[in-house]
Simulated assay, not measured.
Amino acid sequence: MRISTSTPGGVAVQTVAETAPAEPVRSTAPAAAQGELQSAVMQPALQAMKDMPDIDHERVAQLRDALAKGELPFDAGKLAGLIQRFHRGEK
């Protein structure tokens, strides 16, 4: 199976074929424009990852164990509300 991506009219399109195409698929967008788009999209994500604190794996294991033992209450509704708030940009 082969998945290939092309950008007709600047829109990314992926196709799946049982066999590889005879010729490699080439983008019609100029290489400089592709690099600029990738950079513009990826830079904020890369910066956000750099700004994130390190993960305390020991603390995560402690919380996971407490949750599994029922020692830590879990409110699915509250978690859902916090996720919604985060994605709306609220603090």
Results as ranks from 00 to 15, higher is better:
R2W: 15
R2D: 04
I3Y: 04
I3T: 05
S6W: 02
P8I: 08
P8N: 02
G9Y: 03
G10F: 08
V11D: 00
A12V: 07
A12E: 06
V13C: 08
Q14W: 11
T15F: 01
T15M: 05
V16R: 07
V16N: 00
V16Y: 07
A17R: 10
E18K: 13
E18L: 15
T19P: 00
A20E: 12
A20D: 08
A20W: 06
A20I: 05
E23H: 10
V25I: 15
R26D: 00
S27C: 04
A29F: 04
A29M: 14
A29I: 11
A29T: 10
A31Y: 02
A33R: 09
E36R: 13
E36C: 03
L37F: 11
Q38K: 11
S39Y: 11
A40S: 09
V41C: 03
M42H: 05
Q43L: 15
Q43T: 15
P44V: 09
L46G: 09
L46A: 14
L46H: 06
Q47D: 13
Q47T: 15
A48Y: 04
M49N: 07
M49H: 06
K50L: 12
D51W: 05
M52I: 09
P53V: 12
D54H: 08
D54C: 02
D56M: 08
D56L: 08
E58N: 13
R59P: 00
Q62V: 14
Q62S: 12
L63K: 02
R64Y: 01
R64C: 01
D65F: 11
D65W: 07
D65K: 15
A66S: 04
A66C: 02
A68K: 10
A68Q: 07
K69D: 06
E71R: 13
E71I: 02
P73Q: 01
F74I: 01
K78A: 08
K78Q: 07
A80R: 15
A80G: 02
L82M: 14
L82E: 15
I83M: 13
F86L: 14
H87E: 10
H87I: 10
G89K: 06
G89N: 03
